[in-house]
Simulated assay, not measured.
Amino acid sequence: MDQITHDVRSSQWLEIITQCQNRPQGTTAKQWMADNGISEKSYYYWLRKFRKQAYSQMTETSTAISAGKEISFAEVSIPPKQSANVALLSSESSVEAIGPVAVIKNTNISIALTNEISEDLLSRILREVAHA
């Protein structure tokens, strides 16, 4: 199979897998596949390929980090009047007390945001969370 054909099929199967994973609640994957004329064997073959690809990318990243690639940190300063607008939280109960309009979650942190946050501060936070 040439690369173009492979890319087209990968794209089609990625869309099928996404649709299956977003199927209506209460519908099993097997039911959804039968209703949409999708071969179970093909579905799970492509799902396995995508998972292996994702795992490979994760291990490459962690290997690059452990191999000595530079990790950088940036200080994010919060102006005094906005310090109540952003909170780094460790529990869900704290999030509810603030009443955020959005919560950004990572493995180790949750960041609750209110409507009063400045565009500059939000941009800086999003840049740094992407590297966390």
Rank of each mutant, 00 (worst) to 15 (best):
K69H: 10
S10N: 13
Q53P: 02
A87E: 05
T5P: 06
R48W: 02
R9A: 07
A34Q: 13
G37H: 07
I16R: 03
W32R: 03
K49T: 06
L88R: 05
N108A: 11
T63I: 06
N115M: 08
T107G: 07
P100I: 05
Q57Y: 08
Q12G: 00
G99L: 04
E40A: 13
G99V: 05
I98V: 15
I111F: 01
N36F: 02
G99K: 05
T61G: 03
C20V: 15
G37K: 05
I4R: 08
L113C: 10
A67W: 00
I109D: 10
V76E: 02
E116S: 13
S66A: 11
E116Y: 05
P80S: 03
M58H: 12
Y55G: 10
E92T: 09
W46L: 01
T28S: 14
F50S: 01
A54F: 08
Q31P: 04
I111P: 01
Q3T: 15
M58I: 14
L88W: 05
S62M: 13
Q31G: 00
Y43W: 02
V103L: 05
E40N: 09
V101S: 08
C20K: 00
Q57N: 11
M58L: 15
I65D: 00
V95I: 15
L14E: 12
I65N: 04
A102F: 08
L47Q: 08
I65L: 13
S94W: 03
S94L: 10
I4F: 07
L113W: 06
L47V: 01
F50Q: 06
I65Q: 07
K49L: 14
Q3Y: 09
A64D: 11
K30A: 13
S77C: 03
G37V: 05
S94P: 02
A67E: 09
I71W: 00
H6P: 00
P100A: 01
S110E: 04
T27G: 00
H6N: 07
E96Y: 06
Q19Y: 04
W46A: 02
P100C: 05
G37L: 03
S83D: 11
Y45I: 01
K105N: 11
S42Q: 10
P80F: 02
K52I: 15
Q57R: 13
I78M: 06
S39I: 01
G26R: 08
T28E: 01
V103M: 06
G26S: 09
Q57S: 11
D2R: 08
N108K: 13
G26C: 10
T27F: 10
Y55Q: 15
S90T: 13
A102V: 09
N85G: 12
W46P: 04
Y43R: 01
D7H: 05
